[in-house]
Design a protein around this nucleic acid. Structure first.
Lengths: 161, 161
DNA sequence: GTGAATGCAAACATTTTGCAGGGTG
DNA sequence: CACCCTGCAAAATGTTTGCATTCAC
């Protein structure tokens, strides 16, 4: 149910996603199964950030009889394959998002309604590299989450988040 | 066991900590108990980032017979009082750090040895505000964690992390 | 047919909560 | 002496794992 914007939406990333997964499965001698295919379809059709539980009920709702364990196993597989990223905005549970072929982005999260806006800022990234270099670190990844309150009129209404 | 540096260490923050806690307890009509006092002493003497479990065994090791539930309750109280901050570097468990009276800082984490270096960068903070403003967000907090590999010779040895 | 994948339930790890008894202001 | 705090054990939560069965290649 959550919206997301400000970074190019994954319109043509479906092909990329399926290709990468195929390559990964082949490389690891793993198999293409009905459940994996279906979960991927559900995932691609779902919101930008989904939890395992949400993916599970979405799949069930779509008529697929899949176990929660399989959802977790599939998500972990996709993370291993580096085509999905595991995030944690609200404490206590992971959400997953489809990795963007090229770019990295960070998140701006509304504490009231839970909306997650993605953004990218090269200048910040550059400064991060500078900080890392100053401490003799080789940077491999980072996480930048900004928390605050959005100014939407319909905000705060969604108390569920 | 983890080291930490690059931001002024909490040398004189003990007074501040105790004062703030006293004020908070008074304001909320809460009580000063042996366990709270002792836990605070252990915390102040411990590493910069401790988990509830670590604090618990440290307390036990120091001869205090305290329950894990009380450790959690006390930590949550300190977080509510805003004199301790809850963080999450490695997934699955929280670590707690004593809030710095004045300043905020971010973290640089070595994926091999687990060392956490604290740093502050005003320029990055400023850019974050700019990003938030561009999306009409009122920023309340943020989280910036840089992950990478430190270049210490004794790194990677500590496989426990 | 071999090995991988699935579903279920049980196991796990971390944090929270209910309750009876003890302590603080 | 009212109310908070504690310890313990049980519950709650989110994720992983063991096992027997089914399925893909």
């Amino acid at each position: 149910m959550k919206e997301s914007k400000a970074v190019s939406p994954p319109i043509d990333s479906r092909r990329w996603f399926v290709d990468e997964l195929g390559k990964y499965l082949a490389r690891k001698n793993l198999k293409q199964t009905k459940q994996r295919q279906a979960l991927i379809d559900v995932f691609l059709g779902a919101a930008t950030h989904v939890s395992a539980e949400e993916l599970h009920s979405a799949a069930r709702g779509a008529g697929l009889d899949v176990g929660l364990a399989t959802v977790y196993r599939t998500l972990n597989l996709l993370v291993d394959a580096k085509i999905v990223e595991q995030k944690q905005f609200s404490e206590g549970r992971f959400v997953y998002e489809i990795a963007q072929p090229g770019g990295h982005h960070d998140h701006l999260i509304c504490l009231d309604c839970g909306i997650v806006i993605e953004f990218a800022n090269d200048e910040i990234e550059r400064l991060q590299e500078k900080v890392a270099a100053a401490h003799k670190f080789k940077l491999t990844s980072h996480r930048l989450d900004l928390f605050g309150h959005c100014q939407k009129q319909n905000c705060e209404r969604r108390a569920g988040n």
